[in-house]
Lab assay of single mutants.
Amino acid sequence: MTYKLILNGKTLKGETTTEAVDAATAEKVFKQYANDNGSDGEWTYDDATKTFTVTE
Rank of each mutant, 00 (worst) to 15 (best):
G9N: 06
N8D: 08
D36Q: 12
T17G: 03
K28I: 09
Y3M: 02
F52S: 00
A24S: 09
T11D: 09
E19A: 07
K28H: 07
Y45H: 01
A24I: 10
Y33H: 04
E19P: 04
G14P: 05
K10I: 13
M1K: 11
T18F: 11
T2S: 06
G9D: 04
T44P: 00
T49V: 04
E27H: 10
T17M: 08
Q32F: 05
L12N: 10
K13C: 14
V21A: 12
T55P: 01
T51G: 00
A26V: 01
T51E: 03
T18G: 02
N37C: 13
A26F: 01
E27P: 01
L5M: 04
A24K: 10
F52W: 06
D47H: 11
T44A: 09
K50A: 05
L5H: 01
T2G: 04
G14R: 14
V54E: 02
Q32V: 08
D36R: 09
E56Q: 12
K13W: 11
M1I: 14
T2P: 04
D22Q: 02
E27I: 07
F30M: 02
K10T: 12
E15H: 10
D47C: 07
D22E: 03
S39R: 09
K28P: 02
L5N: 02
Y3E: 02
S39K: 09
L12G: 12
K4M: 07
Y33L: 06
K4F: 12
Y45N: 00
K28D: 05
D36P: 04
V21D: 09
S39M: 15
A23P: 08
K50V: 02
V29S: 05
T18A: 07
N8W: 13
A20S: 05
E19C: 14
F52V: 01
K50M: 09
A48I: 11
T16S: 07
T17V: 08
G38D: 07
T53F: 10
T25N: 07
A20Q: 06
L5Y: 03
A20F: 04
K13F: 10
G38W: 11
V21W: 12
A20D: 02
A34N: 03
D46S: 05
T25I: 06
A20R: 02
T44F: 11
Q32E: 08
N8V: 14
V21N: 09
N35L: 15
M1V: 13
D46W: 03
T55G: 05
I6T: 04
T16F: 15
Q32D: 06
K28F: 09
E15F: 14
T17K: 07
A23Q: 10
Y33R: 03
T55R: 06
T53M: 09
E56H: 08
K13T: 09
E19S: 10
K4V: 09
F30P: 00
D47I: 08
T49C: 04
K50N: 06
W43F: 04
T17P: 02
F52M: 00
L5C: 08
T49N: 06
K4A: 04
D46Y: 04
T2M: 12
T55A: 06
L12I: 13
Q32A: 12
G14Y: 15
N35H: 14
Y33M: 05
N8C: 15
D22W: 02
F30H: 01
Y33Q: 03
D40H: 13
G9R: 06
T51H: 01
G14E: 10
A20Y: 02
G38R: 06
E15N: 06
M1E: 12
K31M: 08
E19Q: 14
T49A: 05
N37Q: 13
A26S: 01
K28Q: 11
A23L: 08
G38N: 10
Y45P: 00
K13R: 11
E42R: 09
T51N: 01
W43M: 05
Y33T: 03
T18S: 04
V54D: 01
Y33A: 03
T49Q: 05
Q32L: 09
G9E: 05
W43E: 00
Y45F: 05
G41N: 06
G9F: 15
E56P: 11
I6W: 04
G41L: 12
A26P: 00
L12P: 06
F30T: 00
E56N: 07
T18Q: 04
N37Y: 13
K28N: 06
N8I: 15
A48V: 10
T2A: 05
T55N: 09
E42A: 09
T25C: 08
F30I: 00
N8S: 09
F52I: 00
V54R: 03
D22H: 03
D22I: 01
T2L: 13
E27T: 03
T16C: 15
G38K: 07
W43P: 00
K10R: 12
T53P: 00
A34L: 14
A24V: 08
T17W: 13
D22V: 02
K4T: 14
V21R: 11
K31V: 06
